[in-house]
Amino acid sequence: MSDGKIYLAATPIGDAGDATPRLRNLLERADLIAAEDTRRLLNLASRLDIATSGKILAFHDHNESERITELLEAARAGMTVLVVSDAGMPTVSDPGYRLVREAHDHNVPITVIPGASAVLTALAISGLATDRFSFEGFAPRKDGDRSKLFNDLVDEERTMVFFDSPHRIGDTLASMALHFGADREAAVCRELTKTYEEVKRGPLAELAEWAADGLRGEITIVVSGASELEANADDYVAEVLTLANAGMRLKAAAAYISERTGVRKKELYEAALARREDD
């Protein structure tokens, strides 16, 4: 290849069928593949019935700094360099951030092959407001660090997305209930896109009790923002009725506003119905 470039490519978070055609193509033709775990990369290639032809290097948190120069020089030499993590997008709670900075600083061409994302998948299926959100990464391991983070996020108005360990999930949810409030709505998303995918929604206190003994699999937690607790149906009735007056069915209007704001659809519908009858 005459023009070298670095490609950051998203890999499936569970179902191998989510691999994009561009990922498949690059796995086959890349001159150099930097993988967070080389065994998982080869396993993915096998599941996709793909044979890699390029050199494969381990690229993880413990060797990222020393690998960067090698990857940049490979791209400068005209090689196609593919960077993948175990699942999802590189640099998102995975190695790659420093590589991207160095590539930009040294004018080495770099681009992204989009694809599966645990963050966006969990957010979409959570049933919580999606118009504004923040990704907070893995919840801290230690109680003190976890409490400090959640205390700092008490007034966060956006929907929040966290990763967590199956062994710590009960403690994490209990700490969230303590700091955010027992009634704060949340969703625990487990094994997304896999055979035993499960999404459990409810107040944090109930979720903490449900997960007290731990869970299995890879876990993403979605927590409603502070503003949603304060919001109530009366604040959005006018918007529901405006849509209904424009021709949308009242239930459909309530569902639309519910999805945007996080207020329960049933509450919006009943409040709008009562307002319409009063008028």
Score class of each variant (00 low, 15 high):
residue 230 E to L: 06
residue 181 G to P: 11
residue 127 G to C: 08
residue 115 G to Q: 08
residue 224 S to H: 05
residue 265 K to E: 03
residue 175 S to N: 12
residue 55 K to V: 10
residue 118 A to M: 14
residue 44 L to I: 03
residue 216 R to M: 05
residue 74 A to D: 01
residue 35 A to G: 01
residue 229 L to I: 06
residue 217 G to E: 06
residue 221 I to R: 12
residue 213 D to V: 06
residue 247 G to I: 04
residue 126 S to Q: 10
residue 175 S to F: 02
residue 73 E to K: 10
residue 8 L to T: 03
residue 39 R to K: 12
residue 156 E to A: 07
residue 210 W to L: 09
residue 31 D to K: 07
residue 221 I to E: 04
residue 257 I to H: 00
residue 138 F to L: 09
residue 5 K to C: 15
residue 107 N to C: 07
residue 262 G to R: 04
residue 52 T to E: 03
residue 202 G to P: 09
residue 257 I to V: 14
residue 71 L to Y: 04
residue 174 A to I: 09
residue 126 S to K: 05
residue 219 I to A: 01
residue 43 N to T: 10
residue 41 L to Y: 05
residue 183 D to G: 08
residue 161 V to I: 13
residue 99 L to Y: 05
residue 238 A to H: 07
residue 278 D to F: 02
residue 156 E to Y: 11
residue 186 A to C: 08
residue 268 L to G: 00
residue 205 A to T: 08
residue 31 D to C: 06
residue 113 I to Q: 12
residue 120 L to F: 13
residue 138 F to C: 10
residue 266 K to C: 03
residue 35 A to S: 09
residue 245 N to L: 01
residue 45 A to E: 13
residue 62 H to C: 02
residue 70 E to Y: 01
residue 254 A to M: 02
residue 202 G to Q: 11
residue 123 L to N: 02
residue 47 R to W: 06
residue 114 P to N: 10
